[in-house]
Design a protein around this nucleic acid. Sequence first.
RNA 1: GGGCGCGUAGCUCAGCGGGAGAGCACUCGCUUCACACGCGAGGGGUCGCUGGUUCAAUCCCAGCCGUGCCCACCA
Length: 882
Amino acid sequence: MLDKTFRPDEVERAHYSDWESNGLFKARADANADPYTIVIPPPNVTGSLHMGHALNNTLQDVLIRVHRMQGRNTLWQPGTDHAGIATQMVVERQLGEQGVTRHDLGRDAFIDKVWDWKAESGGTITRQLRRLGASCDWSRERFTMDDGLSDAVKKVFVALHKKGLIYRDKRLVNWDPKLHTAISDLEVEQREVAGKLWHFRYPIEGREGEFITVATTRPETMLGDTGVAVHPEDERYLSLIGKYCIQPITGQRLLIVGDDYADPEQGSGAVKMTPAHDFNDFDVGKRHDLEMINIFDADAHVNENAPEAYQGLDRFVARDRIVAQMDELGLLEKIDEHPHTVPHGDRSGVPVEPWLTDQWFVNAEVLAKPAIEAVEQGRTKIVPKQWEATYYDWMRNIQPWCISRQIWWGHRIPAWYAEDGTIFVEETEEAALKAAAAHFGRDVKLSQDSDVLDTWFSSALWPFSTLGWPEQTPELERFYPTDVLVTGFDILFFWVARMMMMGIEFMGTEPFHTVYLHGLVRDENGQKMSKSKGNVIDPLSLIDKYGADALRFTLCTMEVQGRDVKLSEKRVEGYRNFSTKLWNAARFCQMNECRNVEGFRPAAVTQTVNGWIISEVVRTAAQVNRAVAAYRFNDIADTVYHFAWHNFCDWYLELIKPVLQGEDSPEKAECQATAAWALDQILLLLHPVMPFITSELWSSMGEGREALMSQQWPEYPDSMVDSTAIDDVEWVIRVISAIRGVRSEMNIKPGAKIPLLVKDASETSLRRLEQLAEPLQRLARLESVDTSVTEAPQGAVQQVVDEATYMLPVAEVIDISEEKSRLEKEISRLDGEIDRFDKKLNNENFTSRAPAEVVAEQQAKREAAVVQREKVEEALGRITEL
RNA sequence: GGGCGCGUAGCUCAGCGGGAGAGCACUCGCUUCACACGCGAGGGGUCGCUGGUUCAAUCCCAGCCGUGCCCACCA
């Protein structure tokens, strides 16, 4: 016998280890079944499970479990990401607590430390995914820095370099002065700051007392000014184009150039040019051959190219000094308040500095073309569809991807330099040496590039590198391309787009057929969860408190087509209650010996209620299957919830109670078997969302049954729906509800039994009364049912349901005036309704233009209202007589 | 500046060309022998505003207002 409540913590771990140790998560490279593959978005190896992971992996697990039960050869490929900067920062912080920097250790020792840290804490996230119930094939777990995956990275780098799609270039990049590395455009986030706009006067060379006014938000860059731009058609400045002005602090001569970039409407119409520290100025500088003076070092401190007084200053200190000095010189014209956005490093949080350096780039434009076509031609579908526009927009305007990072943790760039600077890009040092020897005609010394690759470079290969590429493995053959990628929209560009490019380039076909993009998990007020706001909800603590199933169900039911999920603990609690409900339904079945019957044939049942619940199962399964196919996760969860609670528990179990509690009979046996079967179907349909409780109940409902997760997924033909049974049971539900409504409204004691009188019953109604009399009497608390009535007794309350009038002789227990006003209200409501229908039906436009069946439908509704009104009128008449 | 969402019951949200639904919350009543993490019965909404299309608009279209996010080189 089951306990009174479900205790998730007692069974979850046991079930999970059973599944895992019995190999139920394993995919088979040699199996014939149609494969179904999902690669996990690899979490940071040193990370821990947050709510975003919980959502992401719940959705994947739902898809994986459904398809596994459908008999597909299912691979959920797990693994973790080395997360270059993030991981390096974590380890550096740890070292920092001991007063050690990575430079104290040196590169090799530091990297050893990171590996130690990985060995120590790298299992956290995968353990936590197990607690969530994720049915990954852990035997195939990969790490982006595994040997095999590193080989893939090298191979890809070399191949793209040979094709000219990876190249080294000296360009302005986003430099993070705190982390001392270049970062890609995507790692830059714009932050609104309350800045200022300073207007300065620059003296014109050779024209005493004449100035040109320039405005800037970054006075410190004045140290690197090499020009001033004005619009070529701006009449104010026409005479100055080609002349020089003087940078008052550096004394630099600044050529005044005419360039379309200068906007006459903005500021003074003249803009100072700092080509080495601004992306726009860089372009203008190139066009006009302006000098590029780099004035910052890697810390964004002023370097030796600036006047001595400024050297070594932090950029913001330098800014203040420059403003002060310009003011002293009388050249500060004005200062405007100027809120604007400033680019910040997403990891470091400090403003990034455009900085001129040598970096490695991927020519993304070429790789993007076929990746755009794959979506245009529908080979890869993005769900929800509106993200396709975002994808196109970014891909069509894609910029070169800066892939080199000046950090230590990551894939070292496979490029070697000879002393004269010649570059050899090869997969191994040996190959590079050989190439160099061939090039120089003698053996030479080479040194490897000290940079590592952007983390997303290796992640971009994930769908095929995890399957063994560049080896031609059976896994690669079988499981690539994958079926669906489930991830957050926030990494559409970082990751999805790049997997598309790399997958197509190296595998010849796109890495997945469908990309499902879900939203962010926010708190119940729609706020982003963040440590500083203190509104972070830890999934593990919710699992501890309510069980993994409750959390999973909540995330699933809140996931509506990629919209953000607003999570409240209250909601989780509510779905924990659902699992208790389910638990007790099973308990009830057990108590009433509803056992699974070998060879039970749903189509062969004879009892109406059984036919009904079976039909509802069939409908529910169909609805769930539609929801799965459409990635409507909320519908999957809601559909089963509604069926389990409101059909199975509220009505079916209540309806069969009298039979179950009666004498043994064929009817009772059929109800027991049907109940057991229907409960099984709930467990099957719910298993992908709530794997633990369903498995627990599955095994407790039958001795020695095989694991639920390897059972056949429910799919039934529509022909199994018995619409007569549905109509009949829906009828009895309506009648019972109507009677209960009257009892409640009339304030009739719950225990009091009163007779039900029925008149004008049609044949169908009579049949139903006969067939469903027992549950009707019990659930509506009736003393008896009398169908021989021809006249309503005085003061009987009447309810018309379908083709019969149901009356409760309650004159002595009710307040007549209340009942009168109730009926009067009902009549005026019906009058309004009838009026509306009349208006519509008398409208020729409607009757001639609307489809015939719509008109008929409206007519029928009107008639029903009229009949109802007559009945109520009669009842009112009788009450008035009292 | 460009793009994408969202405004429906007190809250969180489904829905969608033929007079609106769920969960939670609320009110009332229940020690009904599976479940009080429960059972039953209720109250509550000019479906953001204004126009248009249509016989018919919460639903389609346009504009506006509010709100959120993404992208962008604006001194």
